[in-house]
């Protein structure tokens, strides 16, 4: 007995979906390499290889066939998202720990592809953030502001052999969000802080261009119809509104909405991380609530929390709320309940 439909299917596949996501990430990656140096290639490559290795290991242990699941591309997407979220030029084992948690714990302990409650990349990122906070603050400095930018060979050396000839101070720096947080804690006013060169035009030198490219990639995803407008619009919109209200109430302590939108992981999360279908809400209304919750939390953590950027944690908290949100936001089914009109 063969089930219907019996026909050439729509030509959609998990691999194709993942491939399109990877394509949409490319503008951001290129911008990253351009503005922060070629170190990103090393971390992308490393994370991809580690991801595939861990995935293969997990599949073997669980008795699943390797070929369809290794080639579905989901591991590569997780690897790239983690690599793009992490500081480049960190020691290799840091990536290894991150990918280990992402693939083995967040993905396969929950049942593998399609079963994970949390975004694997964000689990890996969050584990690193709480376990190795020092490494997670050594971000590559923008080429424009750095006294030295390691080339590709040097980047390999730094990642695999640790210290190179140059002191890390020459090529790493704090992100604008880090700077903002530490200097605000020291009592400085936002206006003064943000006048520094690291802050660039809106969201930090270098960062703002990468973010712009992520936005471009996100529009590509929308065009591919892989994501709907709900999550990015609700997420970015809530960030803007929350940040706007805070700035209106107390401008000396809160940066402007545009800065929030263009710094840290907000844009990447809006189009690539929060929209991971497996861990995101799936109903239209649910997506608005889910992404709105995440947007609100991002601004709250950035302004009042213990971390400079709250994206990883907000994503995980929002993921946690998904089953609940989905259960209560089921859309109306054709032929059901038209009563909301009259009464």
């Amino acid at each position: 007995m063969t089930g219907s439909p019996h026909t050439v299917l729509a030509g959609n596949s998990v691999r194709l979906v993942m491939l399109k996501v990877l394509v949409a990430l490319i503008p951001g990656i290129v911008a990253h390499a351009w503005f922060f140096g070629p170190g990103i290639w090393v971390s992308l490559l490393l994370c991809t290889l580690l991801g595939v290795a861990f995935e293969a290991l997990a599949l073997l242990m669980r008795g699943y066939p390797l070929k369809p699941f290794l080639s579905d591309g989901s591991t590569v997407v997780t690897a790239w998202l983690l690599a793009l979220s992490m500081p480049t030029l960190a020691p290799w084992w840091l990536y290894a720990v991150g990918m280990l948690f992402a693939i083995l714990v967040a993905k396969h302990l929950y049942g593998g592809l399609g079963q994970n409650l949390f975004n694997p990349a964000m689990i890996g990122f969050a584990v690193l953030l709480v376990s190795f906070p020092v490494y997670m603050t050594q971000w590559p400095a923008p080429v424009e502001l750095a006294s030295h930018t390691p080339d590709l060979i040097e980047s390999f050396d730094l990642v695999f052999a640790g210290q190179g000839a140059v002191s890390p101070d020459a090529y790493t720096t704090a992100t604008p969000l880090d700077l903002l947080r530490t200097q605000r804690l020291a009592g400085d006013e936002v206006g003064g802080i943000m006048a520094q060169p690291a802050f660039g035009v809106v969201g930090g030198t270098g960062h703002e261009m990468v973010v712009l490219m992520y936005l471009l990639g996100g529009l590509l995803l929308l065009n591919y119809r892989l994501i709907t407008w709900h999550i990015p619009v609700a997420f970015l919109g809530t960030i803007a509104v929350t940040a706007g209200v805070l700035q209106f109430l107390d401008p000396t302590n809160h940066p402007d909405p545009l800065f929030h939108l263009t710094s840290g992981g907000a844009m990447l999360a809006a189009f690539f991380i929060l929209t991971d279908p497996v861990s995101a809400s799936a109903t239209p209304r649910g997506k608005l609530i889910y992404a709105g919750l995440a947007g609100f939390l991002v601004v709250m953590i950035r302004n009042y929390g213990g971390y400079p950027d709250g994206v990883a944690f907000t994503v995980l908290i929002a993921n946690m709320a998904v089953p609940f949100i989905d259960a209560y936001t089921q859309p109306r089914v054709f032929g059901h309940g038209r009563k909301e009109k009259g009464k």
């Binding site: 019996h6 050439v8 369809p68 592809l113 109306r332 089914v333 054709f334």
Partner: peptide
């Protein structure tokens, strides 16, 4: 014209089915 269906993979909750469903269900 009628190839055998490719081997199924796990559901990734992408929602393509919900967008295609004329009964406006949540097939996944």
């Amino acid at each position: 014209l009628f190839p055998a269906a490719p081997a199924p993979m796990p559901c990734i909750r992408c929602g393509a089915c919900a967008r295609a469903c004329p009964a406006e269900l949540q097939p996944f």
